[in-house]
Design a protein around this nucleic acid. Structure first.
Length: 767
DNA sequence: GTAGGGTTAG
């Protein structure tokens, strides 16, 4: 109210314009709304009026109302440097970097604070070079400038550069010391923190908290406790950090003791106790503390809900969710994850759709929910829509989308997401990096996988495992083993998964002795007890090498029952060496153990086909039809089907008998049954099913989509595509289908399919 | 009552 009154005073007054009024020439600036009259010149716009305006501008900016702030700013007949500084700083905190930069460039007189604001703005934008340029060009620097630069280097991991800045500072205050301490703590250099700490007498409370936190980060509880005991004063952060430290390291007893000693238990500390019990899987205790809490914040509610969600207790989670007096985005997000984990995707979706506001976690949660439920198409559809609508997406959303691409081998889409990821600056960490790596490995692009691997700055055991397994899978045994050696040199300890990759690399390269050595020293060298997968690798190796007897002996002596994969290794070996008897035995075992395992039908029919036993191939086909296997994966079905009719498919050639029509009839049946068949080289699509049209957008270069196969009036088979623009890659795939069906007529610009347009393929650039 | 630099965890 006061402000409005003051505003009218400006409007009424006229004259004085000590500082030349800035004309609103830039396209960055919004024009003032027309209902406000042009501002007359004022005669009494005092310094105190400027301050009042500045305060009002600050208020607007802190409410995120940049336009209102700018209107007021432009209406000021006279502005001080502080007015500019306020505007710039407000723009920066609202993420309007360009506008801030523009105002900075236009500013008539820049002072020390102006530069400091811009330096910190650039630092927050991770533009260290620009920050440094400003720092170097500013005429005078104070301790704030130095601190801003210091924190820039420190927070972005340039520890050495940060230290150089710190050493060069003539004047240091508490913040300078704390910034450098924080840098060392965050990078786990606790010894350096200790050295710095010992170099000075008196320390601020915050610094003590840093030191303690540093020890806790390294799980050095005893030293952390010593720091805690020696602290001259403690605040809530100190207490809470120590309590959390115990809780996170599983010592709830000590956490609880300290918690009740704590002089003032704030909501934060209470919540930490709740999450502590949850992390240690003591849900009842957590609930007890939760019920005891004098006042509960929304975070406490969410923590408790998350606890029930984690323990898959959907009912209690749901009850609590309904009871929350004040829900926020995070409450709903937690529940979405809960529903997803309990396979009630519809509820998750319903909640998501009803949310008034969504944040990046909501998006990643709903994407993950669909991924988790195996609905890759929907997951990707949501991701792409969010992307197109300019939603802010976090790393998890990208990881979810990339994982889905890996699942369905959507290479091109994966590549596009990679570009987006790089643009968002997410591609260096191992979290997103591993997902990219996995996607490229799964899509068979080992070269790109390696490039991604090289770029990951903090490679963890998963990064190494993925690249090693990737190499092994694609027949680069030597490369896999080389990376295994580099991994050990990088002091990353191999785990069970690593060793599966290493063993299978040996099998695929035929390094019999090496693999035996690795297998029998698993425990001695790496402390790993061989699991069924390791045994399967060994059996696979022996089988490939032709030692079928030895392979069977190993299998007999395994400490566990053979599973489908183990028998599968034997079946594969039987196929290579043409041992039908053993192959059939293995296949029977697999059919008994895993009737859904469609790959085994392919292996066995391959075996029969290699021996020219076409009748048996056909039997396989019929057997597959009897079970519901063929519904699980079109790929295997088409493989067996092709063989049973003796066609050429892709790289494989079988004696052609010309039974194209029989093939087509079965294909028709299949399509009626399932709507569509997805195969590595072949995708058939039922036109009726509109919702499956999304597939159109996601197929990779290895897949082609055809909207159905029909018989033309002349009785010849034809493929047609509707609304589908086709690139070279897809065309190649379609030609492949032509090979299968014998003859292909593509009805393009016919009356019925007049939607077809030339141009780029739908599988290409999608956004 | 106007602008700039540093803590816990999520």
């Amino acid at each position: 109210m006061r402000f409005r009154h003051f505003h009218t005073t400006i409007l009424r007054s006229s004259r004085i314009n000590a500082m030349p009024r800035r004309r609103n020439t830039s396209h960055f600036f919004e024009p003032p709304p027309s209902r406000e009259p042009a501002r007359p010149k004022t005669n009494r716009f005092t310094d105190s009026d400027i301050v009042k305006c500045n305060v009002a501008i600050t208020n607007h900016l802190s409410n995120g109302q940049c336009a209102a702030a700018l209107r007021l700013f432009n209406s000021m007949p006279r502005k001080s440097t502080v007015s500019y500084n306020t505007m710039i700083s407000g723009y920066l905190s609202n993420g309007e970097f360009k506008l801030a930069q523009h105002l900075f460039d236009e500013m008539p007189v820049k002072d020390l604070v102006t530069y400091n604001i811009m330096i910190s703005g650039n630092v927050k934008n991770r533009n260290l070079r620009a920050a440094r340029r400003l720092f170097d060009e500013m005429p005078v620097r104070d301790v704030v400038s130095w601190n801003a630069m210091l924190s820039g280097y420190a927070q972005n991991g340039y520890l050495d550069e940060a230290r150089r800045v710190f050493d060069a500072m003539q004047e240091r205050n508490e913040i300078s010391w704390n910034t450098i301490l924080a840098a060392y703590v965050q990078n786990g250099k606790i010894e350096e923190v200790r050295r710095l700490f010992d170099s000075k007498e008196r320390w601020a409370l915050v610094s003590w908290n840093y030191l303690m936190g540093g020890y806790l980060k390294k799980k050095r509880l005893v030293e952390a406790r010593q720091v805690f005991e020696h602290m001259p004063v403690r605040d809530e952060v100190s207490w809470n950090t120590m309590v959390t430290g115990y809780a996170q390291n599983g010592d709830m007893k000590e956490a609880r003791k300290l918690f009740y000693e704590c002089p003032s238990r704030g909501v934060f500390t209470w919540t930490e106790m709740v999450s502590g019990y949850i992390q240690n899987r003591q849900l009842h205790e957590a609930r007890r503390v939760f019920d005891e809490m004098p006042e509960k914040g929304v975070v406490s509610w969410n923590a408790m809900i998350a606890g029930y969600v984690q323990s898959k207790n959907r009912v209690l989670a749901g009850e609590l969710f309904e009871a929350v007096p004040y829900k926020n985005i995070s409450s709903s997000n937690t529940m979405i994850i809960g529903y997803a984990q309990n396979n009630v995707i519809a509820k998750a979706r319903d909640l998501f759709d009803r949310m008034p506001h969504r944040d990046c976690i909501s998006w990643s949660a709903i994407i993950a929910a669909h991924v988790y439920n195996g609905d890759s198409e929907e997951a990707l559809r949501i991701f792409i829509e969010a992307m197109r609508d300019g939603e802010r997406l976090n790393r998890s959303a990208f990881v979810g989308a990339l994982t889905t691409c890996a699942d369905i081998a959507a290479f091109k889409l994966g590549k596009q997401i990679h570009r987006r990821v790089a643009k968002a600056g997410f591609d260096f960490g191992c979290y997103v990096g591993n997902a990219l790596l996995f996607m490229y490995c799964r899509c068979g692009s080992i070269k790109e996988a390696y490039e991604v691997f090289e770029r990951i700055e903090d490679k963890d055991v998963i990064s190494w495992n993925t690249i090693i397994t990737g190499y092994a899978r694609h027949g680069f045994g030597q490369e896999a083993l080389q990376h295994f050696e580099s991994m050990k040199q990088a002091s990353i300890y191999p785990d069970e998964v690593t060793m599966v990759g290493v063993l299978s690399a040996c099998s695929h390269t035929g390094l019999v002795d090496k693999e035996k050595h690795y297998f029998y020293s698993l425990n001695k060298d790496h402390g790993i007890v061989p699991n069924p997968k390791h045994y399967t690798c060994l059996i696979d190796l022996l089988g490939r090498a032709g030692c079928l007897d030895e392979a069977q002996k190993v299998m007999k002596n395994m400490p566990f029952e053979a599973d489908g994969a183990t028998w599968g290794a034997l079946l594969g070996a039987s196929k290579i060496h043409g041992n039908t008897e053993l192959g059939e035995k293995a296949a029977e075992m697999i059919f008994a153990l895993e009737p859904w395992n469609s790959g085994m039908y392919v292996l066995l029919s391959n075996l029969y086909a290699a021996l020219g036993r076409w009748e048996d191939v056909n039997k396989m086909r019929l057997r597959m039809m009897d079970t519901n296997v063929r519904k699980t994966l079109g790929y295997s079905w088409v493989e067996v089907l092709n063989k049973s009719h003796m066609f050429s498919v892709g790289d494989w050639t079988y004696p052609a008998s010309g039974s194209i029509h029989a093939f087509l009839e079965e294909l028709d049946l299949q399509m009626k049954d399932e709507g569509y068949v997805l195969a590595t080289r072949l995708v058939l699509h039922d036109v009726e099913k509109e919702k499956k049209q999304h597939m159109l957008k996601y197929h990779s270069e290895r897949l082609a989509i055809v909207y159905g196969i029909m018989k033309t009036p002349s009785g010849r088979p034809a493929c047609f595509y509707k609304n589908l623009r086709v690139c070279e890659d897809c065309h190649t795939a379609i030609k492949l289908i032509a090979k299968i069906v014998g003859r292909l007529i593509i009805l393009r610009d016919s009356n019925r399919f007049h939607h077809f347009e030339g141009g780029s393929c739908n599988c290409g650039d999608y956004w």
